[in-house]
């Protein structure tokens, strides 16, 4: 008995040792910055490094700024539509790729391209594609198909740019979702489908009563990750178009342009962080039932 206990203790100690490198890197490089930002958010920071304590003033001035609320709304539009679109499209692609067809190996490789190509290298092509004067998209829409009678700036205009950003996000991240879903799809027991067929279930019924429940937790995790990633997304949007002011972009402009208010920038970051944590806890409880 005595010996057994020490073995377990030994084991526990080894366990801690094994996880320690990962844990310490994460804690050190995440906790300090978070703490630093919370600290800064109570100060009026100037370029020369002198800061004065101003209590909650940064927060009140951020929260009373209508453009902040507008960017919260933009963020939610972006995150919700891009997460939903990515998951849906990823699911469709996973179902298609789960069927056998000629040249499937090639198609499978091709559809990974958006995910693997560096953002910076593809944004130029997107900008070119949607360029109002020289782009192919407008050429087709106006000159060839005649769907619109006038060219317009899809990627630049304040009302359309967010949709381009959403489609870009779907384009960029659906392969990840598809890969995750496909690997789960392949592990579903074939007997389940056969049994359902014997019971006379059609494809729709099979999808809803077998496939979807089997995918539930994978999808739950993917949606969660995608939601978090897109909520904090900066590069993809910033490099593609400067007209979609989601929170991270709004913060960047606040902290790094104009009169460069680092204090307010920090306050914004803290608010964004708090908002996200609240949402996630809710989601984890309700959907993933942790």
């Amino acid at each position: 008995m005595q010996k057994h206990l020490t073995l377990e203790q030994k084991d526990a100690r080894l366990g801690v040792k094994l996880v320690l490198p990962a844990l310490s890197i994460i804690l050190l490089l995440i906790l300090y910055p978070v703490g630093y930002n919370i600290y800064l958010s109570f100060f009026d920071v100037t370029m020369t490094g002198q800061s004065t304590y101003i209590a909650l003033e940064n927060y009140t001035s951020v929260l009373s700024d209508p453009t902040f609320w507008k960017s919260v709304a933009t963020t939610f539009t972006y995150v919700i539509f891009s997460t939903f679109g990515t998951t849906l499209f990823g699911l469709i692609v996973a179902m298609v790729m789960n069927k056998k067809f000629p040249l499937r190996w090639l198609v499978r490789s091709i559809i990974l391209l958006p995910y693997v190509a560096p953002v910076i290298s593809v944004v130029f092509a997107w900008q070119f594609f949607f360029d109002p004067v020289n782009g192919i998209f407008m050429h087709f829409m106006v000159d060839v198909l005649g769907i619109y009678d006038q060219r317009f700036n899809l990627i630049g205009s304040p009302s359309y740019a967010i949709w381009v950003a959403i489609i870009f996000s779907i384009w960029k991240s659906f392969p990840f979702t598809y890969l995750m879903l496909l690997s789960r799809l392949q592990t579903i027991d074939k007997n389940l489908y056969e049994a359902a067929e014997i019971d006379g279930c059609g494809p729709v019924r099979k999808f809803f009563s077998i496939t979807l429940p089997e995918l539930y937790f994978v999808m739950g995790s993917i949606v969660l990750l995608r939601f978090i990633w897109n909520f904090n997304k900066f590069e993809d949007i910033y490099l593609l178009t400067d007209n979609v002011k989601v929170l991270s972009i709004y913060t960047y402009f606040k902290a790094f342009t104009g009169n460069m208010d680092l204090g307010q920038g920090s306050a914004l970051v803290v608010i964004q962080f708090g908002l996200l944590i609240g949402l996630i806890l809710l989601y984890v409880k309700k959907v993933l039932k942790w």
Binding site: N134, Q150, N153, S157
Partner: peptide, 13 residues
Amino acid sequence: NPPGPQTWRARDY
């Protein structure tokens, strides 16, 4: 102007 928000890059046109 050419359509949409424009900046100096549009000198390409």
